[in-house]
Amino acid sequence: MNYKALSFDLRRDCVDIIMAGGGGHIGGDMSVLDIMATLYLRKMNISPENINDPDRDRFVLSKGHAMEAYYAILAYKGFLDLDDIKANFSKYGSKYIGHPNNKLPGIEMNSGSLGHGLPVCVGMALAGKMDNRPYRVYTIMGDGELAEGSVWEGAMSASHYKLDNLCAIVDRNRLQISGNTEDVMHHDSQQERWASFGWNVITVDGHDYDALSAAFDSAAATKGRPTVIIAETTKGYGSSVMENKAPWHHKVPTQEEYAQIMADFVARKEEALHE
């Protein structure tokens, strides 16, 4: 499977969902997509067939606003129907809202307010330890999200309880709604901060499927402490129209921009197929 090539089809689905619904968080969707796709398509023991299995792996999208990328992946995995999402996303009375909702199959917890995912995942990982279950627990946070104090409360308790079945991922795209993360609130050095809280820290190219996959394997092999993967990403990844541009946090493309974005995705997919 050429995941890199596939990722541009998933990005197309994601942007189509945003166009259909007239809104979304396109920049963060693009930066987080490869991390989430690696988890759902290559790593996690989760599928529509085992959603009630107590041993399934758990995932919480802490940066819940990247919901359109999540929809694209859940649809690809068969949890949801892509056409139904595109027909109804954000529409009056729709079950497809702009943040995760666990009334939908495949979604474990509701999120949207930032800084919630890590403490919740600490609880899930503790339950796994208590019941001696083999599942692993994953959460993805945005880098702007790290200003929430609850993230660091969760970081403390995960390390205190030696939760090696827990893996947090930071989507380090260095942009948030107001601009550069380092201007809004200083977050470097991520590596030093997490290490000082007792975490195993892995830094990886967040758009490299093999590197991400290896990082998740390394996390699973690390015993006695939780792992954080600092995934260095590009906000708006996939199209020059939006890459590294803060206003694309939640911009909806015009028809011209949409055409260019789709053309860029096709070209990048071609590149990936010939790599």
Binding site: E108, L118, P119, V122, G123, M124, A125, L126, S150, S157
Partner: peptide, 23 residues
């Protein structure tokens, strides 16, 4: 028994995660 320390946000978030896994 889970001691969370003086961290009430973490306290309730952890409880919800435990509950989501059957506790």
């Amino acid at each position: 028994f889970v001691e969370v320390g003086i961290a009430e946000q973490d306290l309730v978030g952890i409880a919800a995660g435990l509950a989501a896994c059957g506790k």
